[in-house]
Each structure stands twice: as structure tokens, then as C-alpha cells.
């Protein structure tokens, strides 16, 4: 099967997947207890009649199948729905937040791979102290919830006073020149990106190390060493591609997680991405926002997995596309 047709088929199945995700998400949202208006029940000044009227206004009294049909029809026309909480179309809420999130996760993902792969290779090839430090460091980082990592970094920054504490820009950033704006954004990016890197680094590091260690014992590496091939060339040109399979799948996850990996860290560090909006919408049962975000990140998941499959194929030509 040629690559183009394969991609076509994958995209078609990806669309089916999105349909299934939306259907299931709708059903789950109906099953989950509570509704957007519940908060009002605790306000003694709002009468049950007002409550019922509002339910009708938001269409929450309609059966779930009907609500899904409405939503689907709108979605096919490119309308992602309406937020109850903001009284505004969902699309007006999520797009610029998406780009903020991508800035953060893109930077972090880049750094993770930049750091983790060389460290993993070195720790597999050299062993010794570096290996032990990597091993202990990664199991320590894996055992700390990412929120705690972010909080610890922030607590440190509060005490050192060198970096801004949260958000993405200074209050008066509009009045800055371009270079100052970039500097300002980078300064704000340090803490959330560092937290994300520390949380994701050990996973890639561990996988790289294991896969490389396995490959380095293979006969062909011993043969290559015997032929006097340079160590660096040996590691990067011969060993790494042979060890790449799990890394490629992980890379697919990295792409898939570009919109979802940083949700909690964004809340803690006040990064104006999807995180605060998404989590608040989940708790507030602002379903259309939740489903829109789920759909967008599902689309990214499809893309990420497709990319990893194509990469797998590119690295190992023995694999056939089916």
C-alpha cells in the first residue's frame, strides 16, 4: 500500500474516532452527576422557578440524544458550541488559549527530547555514576506529583525573587518593544516549562536508556566496534535507530499531549492556556467547552499517532504499512 493511501485511510478512521469520542463524551456527561446550574441551588436567594426556567434556557432539560444531534449538526458546520458560563461561543474561548498552551508545551516537549535522548544514550553507553544519578533522579522525579514539582519551583522563585511568579506576560507588556516582549515571555515561561520538563523527562530518559542498553549488547554493535567505527557514530548512526521504536511511540504521545499535558501545571502557574478553562469547565459541568477541548486534543492524538506510525515505517523499512 502506498503512503498517501495509507494516510488517507488513517485520516478517515481518525474522523470516525472523533465521532465516537464525541458520542461517548456526550453520554458520559449525561451520566455524571450534577449540572451547570447546581451552584445556584446553594444560593437561598434563587427560587426553584428561576432555576427551572434557566434549565430550559440552556437546553439542559432536553433529552441527551436531542442535545447530541444539535451539537453534531453545529459541529459539522464548524461551530464548537456555546459556553454556559461565559455566555459566549466556545470557539471564541479556546483558540487563543490553545496557542498559549502550544507555546508552553511545544517549548517543554522540545527541551525534554533535547535533554532526555542524549542523557539516556550516555547513561546506557557510559554506565557508572552518570547512570546511577540518572536512574535515581528519574525515579525521584517520577514519584513526585507534577503539581508538587511546579509548586516547589514557584516557592523557590517567590523566595529568590528573580522570576515572575505566574501568568504569561507582565501587566504592561503591550507597551514593550518586541525584544522586551520576547524576554518577558521567556521569563514567564521558565517555571511552567521547567515543571513540565521535569515531569516528562524521566519517562523518555528511562525508555531511551533501556532501549539503548538492549541494543548495545546486540552482536552487530560488537561487530561494528570490532571494525573500529567511532563510538559517537556507532551510537547515533547504528544503535539509536535500532532502539528507536519505543521512542517513536513516545514521540507520538508527546505530539498527542501538546494540548493536554500541561493542564494542571497551567493552573498552578497561572499560564493562560487551556488548563484553567478546561478544569474549571469540567467542575462547572460546562459541557460544551469540555467536549470542544476533548475533540481538539483527540484530533491531535490522531495526528500524533499517525506521525509515529509513519516514523516507525521510515526508520525500519521492514515494517509494512497495512
Amino acid at each position: 500500500m502506498n503512503t498517501a493511501r495509507y494516510i488517507e485511510r488513517r485520516i478517515a478512521s481518525g474522523l470516525l474516532l472523533l465521532l465516537a469520542v464525541s458520542l461517548l463524551s456526550f453520554s458520559l456527561s449525561a451520566l455524571a452527576p450534577g449540572s451547570f446550574l447546581d451552584e445556584m441551588k446553594l444560593n437561598p436567594q434563587i427560587s426553584p422557578e428561576t432555576f427551572t426556567a434557566l434549565r430550559a434556557q440552556y437546553g439542559l432539560d432536553q433529552p441527551i440524544a436531542l442535545r447530541y444531534a444539535h451539537w453534531l449538526r453545529a459541529a459539522l458546520h464548524g461551530d464548537l458550541g456555546f459556553s454556559f458560563a461565559y455566555n459566549a461561543p466556545v470557539s471564541s474561548l479556546i483558540w487563543n488559549r490553545c496557542s498559549n498552551t502550544l507555546l508552553l508545551t511545544g517549548t517543554a516537549t522540545f527541551l525534554v527530547w533535547l535533554l532526555a535522548v542524549p542523557l539516556g544514550i550516555l547513561s546506557a553507553a557510559k554506565g557508572g555514576w552518570l547512570d546511577r544519578i540518572c536512574s535515581f533522579g528519574s525515579s525521584l522525579l517520577l514519584s513526585v506529583p507534577e503539581i508538587v514539582i511546579a509548586l516547589a519551583l514557584l516557592a523557590f522563585v517567590v523566595r529568590s525573587g528573580r522570576l515572575p511568579i505566574g501568568g504569561m506576560a507582565s501587566l504592561n507588556a503591550e507597551d514593550f518593544s518586541l525584544t522586551q516582549r520576547i524576554r518577558d515571555t521567556v521569563l514567564h515561561l521558565v517555571v511552567p516549562a521547567a515543571a513540565l520538563v521535569l515531569a516528562a523527562l524521566p519517562i523518555v530518559l528511562r525508555h531511551t536508556r533501556t532501549a539503548m542498553a538492549e541494543v548495545l549488547q546486540a552482536p552487530f554493535i560488537k561487530a561494528a566496534t570490532g571494525h573500529g567505527i567511532f563510538r559517537a557514530r556507532l551510537l547515533l548512526r547504528h544503535a539509536l535507530p535500532a532502539a528507536a521504536s519505543p521512542l517513536i511511540s513516545l514521540f507520538g504521545f508527546s505530539i498527542a499531549g501538546l494540548l493536554s499535558a500541561s493542564l494542571l501545571i497551567e493552573v498552578i502557574t497561572g499560564w493562560p492556556g487551556l488548563g484553567p478553562l478546561f478544569l474549571e469547565s469540567i467542575f462547572a459541568r460546562d459541557f460544551q467547552v469540555v467536549i470542544a477541548v476533548v475533540m481538539v486534543s483527540s484530533a491531535l492524538l490522531v495526528v500524533g499517532n499517525l506521525m509515529s506510525d509513519l516514523l516507525l515505517y521510515a526508520v525500519d523499512p521492514r515494517i509494512r504499512l497495512e
Binding site: 478512521s13 474516532l17 469520542v21 455524571a32 452527576p33 492524538l301 499517532n305
Partner: peptide, 18 residues
């Protein structure tokens, strides 16, 4: 693989609430 993608894409939060 599509099943696994479904598993990764779903909002488990609401499922668990339910």
C-alpha cells in the same frame, strides 16, 4: 489501536464521576 486511542481521548473524569 483505534480502541486504545479512544481510551486515551475520552474524558475519564466524567466516567469516574458516573
Amino acid at each position: 489501536m483505534r480502541l486504545s486511542e479512544l481510551g486515551m481521548a475520552l474524558s475519564w473524569f466524567y466516567l469516574l464521576l458516573a
